[in-house]
Design a protein around this nucleic acid. Structure first.
Lengths: 220, 220
DNA sequence: TTAATTTTGTAACATATGTTACAAATAACA
DNA sequence: TGTTATTTGTAACATATGTTACAAAATTAA
């Protein structure tokens, strides 16, 4: 258990001794959930820092029609809903459901504040986790505003930056369409258009950038 | 100056004495910016907690075509980019530009960590500010996925919940269209459709809900 | 190598939203 | 009250993306 906890982002940089010391001084609860049980209920108030340190769960939302929508996958080790812990409207936006046997640690949020104040590293980690969510969401939101061509352009430019090469290996259309949340034929059509406009060229799953300024403009 | 600082969310719940004591023990820099000067540059690294305590500024983004896009308005008192302060890629996503004379306080982030550890209230406030950004962005993202009818339905349901009444006073189409980021005639058309479908009825700027389940289904 | 499976391109049509333009209705004001 | 400015409804058309269907091409398995 302790190794798994130390592997989490929240406890990154903490030594085993520190962790043990910390846990000695902290009221916490360990809980196990069997497969298919519910770990937190949508709309319940979040008053505990919950660290899923073993197992896999999914976040599900139930809409008015009673239909269940899977929102995200949660793999251990990870903190559930860190951004909900210290806000006024602290109700879980989703239910979390164990898809395999799960184990969690609950620390009451007042207790957890004490930890944050005592331990600089954990404070850092916690702030970083929430901050990166904000960062990630901001990026995602910016992407949403782009047209499909813009999303494709952004993807290609990002791949280019990461690999440092001008030629990017292409994902399957299906995978990309999923990533962008669009229909596969729409993606195919749009890629074809971008080739006709001589912005890119694809051969053997390799993308060649033919008109970098145009690509940048599309990605805003 | 101290009153303005105390009016900020970051220092909410702090007394004047506490603030003075805190500032005595902290290295900070006070800076003034004249109208039209730039407070932070896009892509610069963020290593200071910056509190704008007087004035008004805007966040601007410069795209590849060199065109400037206004991203958000920043009214004092407010912390600039709190979510950028403690993440790896800590570059400002926007430039911040003073639209009137501005005054800010800069606290180096290592110094600021010490404050967070010393003062529970400020720690709470800071975490709350970041967390609410996450929360707000998550909601915004969920809204984005809705169709225009869905956005209208969501708006009406939210107004209903806030007022507790079944009859909601309507905003102007222009204002709503801006809120949703759609064209005004599109909004008008869609509202007309919803009336034809007998989901809502609008008379004298008052919305009456005729079919609540349908409305809820639209808002997911 | 052949057969089976998966991926891709494309056409035809459907739907949602944007754009422009203008007239009708309403509100604000002199 | 009449005049002006603003808001609303609506039509006609443009564009982006979704949906369905199917054949061609590529990949994988036998």
């Amino acid at each position: 258990m302790e190794e798994q906890i130390l592997a989490s982002r929240l406890f990154k940089g903490i030594s085993m001794e520190e962790l043990r010391e910390l846990f000695k001084q902290t009221h916490y609860v360990k809980k196990s959930y069997s497969k298919d049980s519910i770990i937190v209920f949508q709309n319940d108030r979040c008053i505990n820092m919950i660290l899923l340190y073993k197992g896999k769960a999914i976040g599900e939302k139930i809409n008015y029609a009673g239909k269940v929508i899977v929102v995200e996958e949660l793999h251990a080790p990870r903190v559930l809903a860190p951004a909900i812990l210290y806000i006024k409207d602290n109700r879980y936006p989703v239910s979390v459901y164990a898809v395999e046997a799960c184990e969690v640690i609950l620390i009451p949020r007042d207790e957890f504040v004490r930890i944050l104040q005592t331990n600089k590293q954990i404070l850092f980690n916690f702030i970083e986790i929430i901050s990166e969510q904000t960062y990630f969401l901001t990026k995602k939101l910016a992407l949403y505003k782009l047209s499909l061509k813009g999303k494709i352009a952004d993807f290609i430019l990002q791949q280019r930056e990461m690999s440092g090469k001008n030629e990017i290996s292409m994902w399957s259309h299906q995978r990309l369409a999923n990533l962008f949340g669009v229909a596969r034929p729409s993606l195919s059509r749009t890629i074809t258009e971008m080739q006709q406009e001589n912005i890119i060229e694809i051969e053997n799953k390799i993308v060649k950038i033919k008109n970098l300024p145009a690509l940048r403009k599309l990605a805003e």
